[in-house]
Design a protein around this nucleic acid. Structure first.
Lengths: 341, 341
DNA sequence: CTGAAAGCGCTTACAG
DNA sequence: CTGAAAGCGCTTACAG
């Protein structure tokens, strides 16, 4: 008979720490929570006792008594498409986790894939199970951030949301990154520069498109060679083919995502365009595949891990009631020059 | 003055559900936990009341009272190198999450990067904060699984561990996958088949190498053209160069990971070997980059998401005390034929 | 600065 | 099958 042992959680309790330190449980609790108004003597005694006993507080009890979850949620709002999600998400996750290390805050992961469960998601997230929410929202039109904000849930969004005004977000500076990419192409003497842009319903798509446009206008060049696509290699390939059909003489293309650039490279090779001699290609993101592409891709790098770190400390700041917190933040990008442009 | 509102968690309590249903709190609790010995009448009344009130149980209270965490941890044991981790980890995570959907089990994420924190990690994981642990362990020598097993923590490891005998794991059938890849190369008439293998301290590396070896032996061919590498594009490139130097006449290479195959392709192109005419290339994993490679990569596909799903239900089964659970599991792979071989 | 005591919202023997 | 009551391990006014 396999019986599941329902052992009592092992280890000492707050009570034992108090006894060993010669103080009350209240005082131990205060020390643990780093509250002021504890004498240095008491604090030291408690710390010693904690170490001696190897005490670690029961989170469930803290949560129940303290009315605080000691946890934050990372919500990935996928809306069906998992496009762009893998390396991006992994990087953000790493950053979030790095920023949480050493704090007594657990990370609870949620992924919403269907709209019909969204009500449950809002219910859960506003129900006290977590103290705050980080959302990686891929589509700017996603209603979840706004709903959570309305429900009074502290939150920080990754990627500029297209709906909801006061919502705090952290994003890469996509506009300036794209502008830098465009300027670089101009500076290398390119005369007819196209762009493969992202979807119109994603802020990341529009911001990068607008950066490229600004670069064209600055240089007195036409900003008319635009093909929208969907952040997939095949989408990038189709867009590249369409651009070549429209303007066989284009000599450069700024692709708003490395993943689409892979498809564009494929088409350019198939059409026997030499890269960068005939057509220069600049991507965006600096995914791992950028450096292994043929030729290695010149691209605008965004620091995805930093995105995760930044949104996390923004949220923790909010939760701690810190004053003077920055409103939404844009993180700088940098141009990585390789062989494709 | 920003004051952090410490609102009481909103929503009804078990008490109110009991009152509305006309039963005791004990009975409501039994219904929620799907215990037997509750009359159909009581059960229905409770369910109605729960719906009417929109009740959702306080997890912290359940954990505290029930001595059960209602959470499992997903531990990524990176040991410094984040190699191979991104798409792999994202896939596993997706699978774990999918399997957890609809159950009242939270997923807590941990990443261990330094050895010196490992003691803390073991302490936390065996301290009752979670009911069980899933480990994605990249290096077979990783001591964490064994330590946790010794501490009595229910766990399932992703990827065959090289140390620790009784530890339950889930892995792709790397041996047979590699064997199939090798057989395919043989079947297409290749005469001198090399392999770029993974590190010797990773089970995934050794299993794929042994599968390839078996394929060579079966075909009566020499299994001597082996270059070990490290699951990076650059490592794959170096290994490919070394193999070509050693055996300029090789006409095929089985690369134990797509990520290394990218580097190998680069070198083959640079050496003006036509693919697959001069040298056929078969990869492993079927990452997204496999289909966008030049030429698109023939590769052995592993279903990473299924890996995550499988390890999750194995762990949940363990926790539920289910009988007749399978010991460790190997998931089938499949050959995806594209243009490179 | 400190302690005694109430209470957070559940689960679980125990008795029926 | 069901209920009354104790208890899980903390935090937090309250009083000092």
């Amino acid at each position: 008979m396999t019986e599941v042992a329902r052992n009592r959680r092992p280890g000492p309790r707050l009570e034992e720490v108090a006894r060993l330190a010669g103080v009350s449980r209240s005082t131990v609790s205060r020390v643990i929570n780093e509250e002021p108004y504890v004498s240095a003597k008491a604090r030291d005694a408690v710390h010693e006792a904690i170490v001696a006993l190897g005490y670690s507080p029961n989170q469930a009890a803290r949560t129940l008594a303290g009315n605080r979850a000691n946890a934050i949620a990372l919500v990935v709002s996928e809306q069906g498409s998992r496009v762009l999600s893998d390396p991006f998400f992994a990087g953000v996750l790493r950053g979030v986790h790095a920023e949480l290390t050493g704090r007594r805050v657990q990370l609870v992961l949620m992924m919403t894939t269907q709209q019909d469960v969204e009500q449950d998601v809002v219910g859960y997230l506003s129900g006290g199970h977590v103290d705050g929410v980080l959302i990686v929202s891929l589509h700017g039109q996603d209603p979840l951030p706004l709903k959570l904000a309305e429900a009074g849930v502290p939150l920080v969004v990754c990627g500029r949301p297209l709906v909801g005004d006061g919502i705090q977000y952290v994003d890469s500076d996509n506009f300036n990154g794209a502008l830098e990419g465009a300027r670089y192409l101009v500076s290398t003497g390119r005369k007819r520069i196209a762009t493969i842009a992202g979807p119109k319903d994603m802020a990341v798509g529009m911001d990068r498109l607008n950066g490229w446009r600004r670069g064209m206008v600055e240089a007195g060049m036409a900003a008319d060679l635009v093909a929208h696509s969907d952040f997939t290699p095949d989408g990038g390939a189709a867009a590249m083919a369409a651009l070549l059909a429209r303007e066989p003489d284009l000599d450069a293309v700024f692709v708003a995502a490395d993943i689409m650039a892979m498809g564009a490279l494929r088409v350019l090779h198939a059409e026997n365009r030499r890269i960068p001699r005939d057509v220069a290609v600049v991507g965006f993101d600096d995914l791992m595949i950028a450096s292994t592409a043929l030729p290695p891709l010149t691209t605008v790098r965004q620091d995805v891990e930093q995105l995760g770190r930044t949104m996390t400390w923004c949220l923790l700041g909010q939760l701690a009631g810190e004053e003077g917190l920055p409103p939404s933040l844009l993180l700088p990008t940098s141009l990585v020059i390789r062989a494709s442009a």
